[in-house]
Amino acid sequence: MIELNDVHKHFGPKTVLHGVNLTIPKGESMVVIGGSGTGKSVLLKCILGLMTPDAGTILLDGQDVARAERDAFLARFGMLFQGAALFDSLPVWQNVAFRLLRGSLARPKLEAREIAIEKLRRVGLKPDVADLYPAELSGGMQKRVGLARAIAAEPEIIFFDEPTTGLDPIMAGVINELIREIVVEMGATAMTITHDMSSVRAIADKVAMLHDGIIQWTGPVAEMDASPDPYVDQFIHGRAEGPIEAVR
């Protein structure tokens, strides 16, 4: 279980997170929605330790992540980045097997390659992709490789940062389905940040709405459409009028 208690983060004079409280139960898929620039990525990076919160605590299974042993802590996570963040200098299979080729999870090269190819197959890519370089792949294929890398070491917790950004609607649907299948199959705890409502409906067990640096509403995805919260109502219906200021 991941618990965020009163998490604050600011950059210079701009406060991005203003006391975020959020609980993600074990084995559930939480999707955090909110407009661009509302701090969704910052929230995710604070949990992973890529950024340090100015105040508040983040607990993973009751342990403060700030005091956790970094390697052991990160070994529990997989992450799909917005732009896939594949390493240009490595072929696809070495990207997928990155964690399996070094560090505490290292194993023989042949075995790591086999696992990488199996994970590529799991995300719908053929084994001949394994020896290509990321620059030779389309955006959708890069996202799939990123997903394969995120699940390669069978993590307990998987984060997805804007998983469908930059993809056509069909490819976005494919990625959403893959994420849902994989999360259910692995029994992983998932946290996704997105402003794509089709992703929310496909991936989420629970939804949290982040705006003005705080969680405005949280609840099961089934209750989202009937939510009385004006922020959620405006956001999911994409209205220009409402409490969320739209810059024209």
């Binding site: 990076k45 992973l48 330790g49 890529l50 970094r70 390697d71 990160l74 070994a75 996570f77 997989g78 992450m79 980045f81 917005q82 732009g83 963040a85 594949l86 390493f87 240009d88 990155f98 964690r99 070094r102 560090g103 505490s104 999870l105 890398r149």
Partner: peptide
């Protein structure tokens, strides 16, 4: 710098490197 801009350095950290 390109690795930083494209979040590859963040990816390294999440991969315990």
């Amino acid at each position: 710098a390109t690795m930083k801009v494209t979040e590859q350095i963040d990816a390294l950290v999440t991969l315990s490197t």
